[in-house]
Design a binder for these strands. Sequence first.
RNA 1: GGAGCGGUAGCUCAGUCGGUUAGAGUAUCGGCCUGUCACGCCGAGGGUCGCGGGUUCGAGCCCCGUCCGCUCCGCCA
Length: 591
Amino acid sequence: MRTHYCGRVTEAFTGQIVHVCGWVHRRRDHGGVIFIDLRDRDGLLQIVFDPDAPEVFAQAERLRSEYVVRVTGRVRARPAGTENANLPTGKVEVLAQEIELLNKAETPPFQLDDDSVGEETRLKYRYIDLRRPQMQQNLRLRHDVVRRIRNYMDANGFIDVETPILTRATPEGARDYLVPSRTHPGHFFALPQSPQLFKQLLMVGGLDRYYQIARCFRDEDLRADRQPEFTQLDVETSFLNMGQIMGLIEGLTRELFREVMQVDLGTLPHMSYAEAMGRYGSDKPDLRNPLELVEIKDLVADSEFKVFAGPAKDPKCRVTALRVPGGGKLSRSEIDAYTALVGQYGAKGLAWIKVNEKGRGRDGLQSPIVKNLSDAALAGILERTAAQDGDLIFFGADKFKVVCDALGALRIRLGADLGFTAPGWRALWVVDWPMFEFDDKEGRWVALHHPFTAPKVFDAAAVENDPGGVLSQGYDLVLNGIEIGGGSVRIHRADIQQSVFRLLGIGDEEAQEKFGFLLEALRFGAPPHGGIALGLDRLVMLMAGANSIREVIAFPKTQTAHDPLTNAPGGVDARQLRELSIRSTVQPPSA
RNA sequence: GGAGCGGUAGCUCAGUCGGUUAGAGUAUCGGCCUGUCACGCCGAGGGUCGCGGGUUCGAGCCCCGUCCGCUCCGCCA
């Protein structure tokens, strides 16, 4: 049927008869001559219809956008002066000798070259949207990444093993997608949030090195970088320490960027969680952005200014300055907008000082709060932030988390708004994570990573006596301020695992009921093991320069987890529910 | 669960202070056109202003409710 892809017919084929198939991208009818841009996955090719062949010409007159055709014709050079430098095939055209209409098409709901079409329309007609070169490119990029991942993992001795999609609900973590069991009335499977436990069992099973391109499911609210089902590269290894596992994954990441993006990421720096929070207010700092938080607790602790002095004396709080070079030019309304931004994160306000002329002391400073601060405090702040004339300094004084969240977000926004964030790629490892964090709302300890993460030192007593002080063997891979992977060395001893469960408020009985199989497996000769999971969608999104993972997923869902194309989720008939021993508490929607 | 922005022609949008027949670009359809490539020119058709209620002599515009889309917070071990 076809001898060449449209996008590959170049001057090398001049004089040849070719058969090409594709969609009518555009028709330009000049009355006496008709041009068709024929499109397939490789690009556009100009087809010319000449009235010397009246039958074919008449057919061409009836062609419409997105009709599917097969064209037979001779490749020829375009007349001098009519080449199109924007097309790879722009030096040639095909003079049509025959055209076969393979299928008609209704008028498309949107034009393929319109890049401002609303996303819901695109998703409803995704099969048309996918014809756009950008989407073709994104999916090919994704394919290329997956292909190279498989090569790398294979070359390093990893075995691809599939784990169950129908599995058990988990007591902690994200909401599960549940699947009712017909054969066990009243019981439910859950779709996996990740293959975490199975991959650990594979290590107990002696597989030694496992990987899987795994689909994961989480029934939580969506974001630009979160879909209810998503894909991760799931990895687990035995008998490797933390550095060795990170080395393998760093090798993979660098290879992907080298081969796919022609970018050398360099050796990835390691940064402790504490340093990341301290300097950037984030556990996933964007190192392309040079702005940094500076601690000023000691400078304002004795101040009359309660807004600063209160938090400065509270060990659960932090008081921080963020210098914005040249920020003195920010208008009052711009500062108000930033105040609204930090308000989203619980900050009660946003103090600031404009440094007009620091040589003049406090008279050279412009600020609503300057009158509240001593000369010594002001001098200390200017010195520690290395402020220059024309700068602006923002302040955060509140609970540790609020200050980190608020100023961390402010830092990102300022970096983007004022152009501080450099282009390019900056990756790093974040390490030395605390094992646990005390959740004030729930009044209990929660795992910062997950409950199977190993502490740095295998000491059950330390875990129970000083949970807040225990660091884990966890590591996150961060790229341009986005977490693209997280992993850890796991707990391979049942006693330590039980201590952790207990600390997290999972009693021995519940642990036995929910995780008995894991605890048992750990007692049957579990090797030391650890691994990681990389978010494939996010990685490809970054590589594609997209700002949503929906752009690199063929059939994504909307923010309410609805698919405008298939209209999923949908109702089911009463008989189906009866078989599953299920009764809905709401009126069934029209199925 | 919460905040913000949006919903007007197939698509992208404008619509003034609440006032006569709701506009533009593009797409579509028809006509003309032999070198275009976002072809051009002429003409035509195309509207449940998301939905429901309210205020008003009069609502695309104001009020209440609701649904949908996007971004964010919560949430996402």
